[in-house]
Design a protein around this nucleic acid. Sequence first.
DNA 1: ATTTGTTTTAATCAATTGATTAATTCAAAT
DNA 2: ATTTGAATTAATCAATTGATTAAAACAAAT
Lengths: 209, 209
Amino acid sequence: MEEKKTVEQPTSTEEKIKEAARRVFTRKGYAATRTRDIAEESGHNLALLNYYFRSKEKLFDIIMIENMELFIKDVLGIINDATTTLEQKIDLLIAHYIDMLLQNPNLPIFILNAVNTNPNELINKVAKTAQLEQTHLAKQWQEIAASRALQINPLHIFLNALSMTVFPFVASPILKLRVGVTDDAFTELMQERKKLIPAWIKSMLQQAG
Amino acid sequence: MEEKKTVEQPTSTEEKIKEAARRVFTRKGYAATRTRDIAEESGHNLALLNYYFRSKEKLFDIIMIENMELFIKDVLGIINDATTTLEQKIDLLIAHYIDMLLQNPNLPIFILNAVNTNPNELINKVAKTAQLEQTHLAKQWQEIAASRALQINPLHIFLNALSMTVFPFVASPILKLRVGVTDDAFTELMQERKKLIPAWIKSMLQQAG
DNA sequence: ATTTGTTTTAATCAATTGATTAATTCAAAT
DNA sequence: ATTTGAATTAATCAATTGATTAAAACAAAT
């Protein structure tokens, strides 16, 4: 009904609830999260959640959109930089994502989960997430696809980069509990992959040409 | 209290409920699934779910374990075959998983989700899932790791194979809704990957040697 | 036909959960 | 000091949800 014209202090109650919601939602997903979990995690009364965000769903939407934005933040700068080569962009993108995901390790499972259960409605909400088609990276990509008459669908290479970078984070509980990889070993592994994945990807581009 | 000694017809009510549960649980996960959803999907009364399976959680455990077994079924035969080379095993494993996942496309998100939210309890339940350490594949793997003094942790290669095979299935909603890949195109893409992924993996083994 | 044990149903329960309400505290403006 | 509006709390609501119960339908054996 009425709009809140709250002045946003950096650590306002509203902000604290939102951050609590981000932690709980990102860890447990929408359905498994109780509004009371969020209230408790935030250290505030349950009613404040509805006071500031109207409903669980509206709060979730905010978190989801912000999480999505986390995924493309800083990336547009890299892929639209006209001064870097395609190979440099690959290096930068992989390194950026590994660093970002090491700090937000359950972001991937959150997003994949949301995308797999909400499909349509969700994608519409985040439709604004920039057109990747006309970026500098896309142009360079098409150039290389044209110059070396690629034997394979370039989507394969893109998929491989995404897979090798992101999948380890969603599979990490398996690595940690079944394969005996410690937290530190996992971080070390991912640091190594910052150099390895670009090398593998470039090698695939060679082979495919 | 008392044990049910039901004679299992192939399409018994119990079986129908279990299959309905498998569909709903695998599609929506544990928390988002209502027992009434399962009852409705199965075409039976809600009370029958508790009659046959005692509780939602027990039913879920059954589905989860069976889904886990789907993941290693047929695979033990491949990795313990003393007559095939390591490279042949790679070919067979990738092809098998792609075929299996094409028929159970939301198995990966189900398992990853379960593993990411239940971590400990779950792994214990499925602890019996065979020791991968002393298989024929593992021996061949160690041999190659020893012969070519590998520059990198062999876990990287394993992770890459898993990533490139499984990740596309959890990312498929993104491919379909954002990248414009149709269902048929996705299947075609995965069919191509049956040949491509083994080639990439072998190339990585070369480079690393 | 009757009995016996299993399967199925309709109705209901108790607990949980998202949300609201009414009252209270607090802070700033007057 | 009083007023005003925002922030916060405790209590409560209504709907949902997992589970149970008691009765009914069914099938097989006697």
